[in-house]
């Protein structure tokens, strides 16, 4: 039951885009049509789902204050949490590189459709942001962190596909010249964010 509530909460209430604005750069740059938005969204779900539990384990057994106690009691007072940025980003960058190589080798058709977006994911704030928020949330086990990762990924995916669909339609509407393109997209995302706020009152 807790897993379900965490899952729904991370999709709607703590939505990566509308509540925290994470991954905004690629969100605005790649949402011009639904097809590419779909590809990037799926890639983000996948990378988030794989790296966040890994980072959770790193945090739990290496970085937290006293986390090294399992190695030897002498290390119980060591606090390595200042290293978390560099370790998290190293895991993410290495993982994206790995995924890129595997996909290139075994799934060439998927690679050509995702191609340029895969390496971009390493610098997507939503991925690193997920890990940094995970650090603050004190999850009790890997399962919870994996559910949180899946939920946030799906939330991000929904947001980018929605925006891409709206922008496709918006191409036909009469927008004031200076507002065209990026300006109106910002305002659209703002309005979508307001709509998503109806989920805020939900307690699960």
């Amino acid at each position: 039951m807790e897993y379900i509530s965490l899952f729904v909460k991370s999709i709607f209430v703590d939505n990566m885009i509308f509540a925290y604005f994470l991954g905004m750069c690629s969100y605005l740059a790649v949402s011009k049509n639904v097809k590419t938005a779909n590809g990037l969204g799926l890639a983000v779900i996948f990378v988030l789902f794989c790296t966040l539990p890994l980072n959770y384990l790193l945090d739990k057994f290496l970085l937290q204050p006293g986390a090294l106690a399992w190695l030897s009691p002498k290390l119980a007072e060591l606090d390595l949490s200042f290293l978390s940025f560099i370790l998290f980003i190293a895991v993410i960058a290495a993982f994206t590189q790995l995924v890129e190589m595997v996909v290139e080798r075994f799934l060439p058709s998927l690679y050509s459709s995702l191609g340029i977006y895969l390496p971009l994911i390493a610098v997507n704030c939503a991925i690193l942001g997920g890990s940094l928020f995970m650090q603050q949330k004190d999850f009790v086990n890997v399962g919870e962190s994996a559910v949180y990762a899946l939920g946030s990924g799906i939330g991000w995916y929904l947001a980018i596909v929605f925006l891409a669909a709206i922008r496709e339609k918006m191409a036909y509407s009469n927008v004031p010249r200076p507002l065209k393109g990026i300006g109106i997209s910002f305002i659209t995302v703002g309005l979508m964010g307001l709509a998503f706020m109806i989920f805020m009152g939900i307690t699960l």
Partner: peptide
């Protein structure tokens, strides 16, 4: 609220 920042930047 967060969405207002987006509208303001727009």
């Amino acid at each position: 609220l967060p969405p207002f920042a987006l509208i303001l930047i727009g």
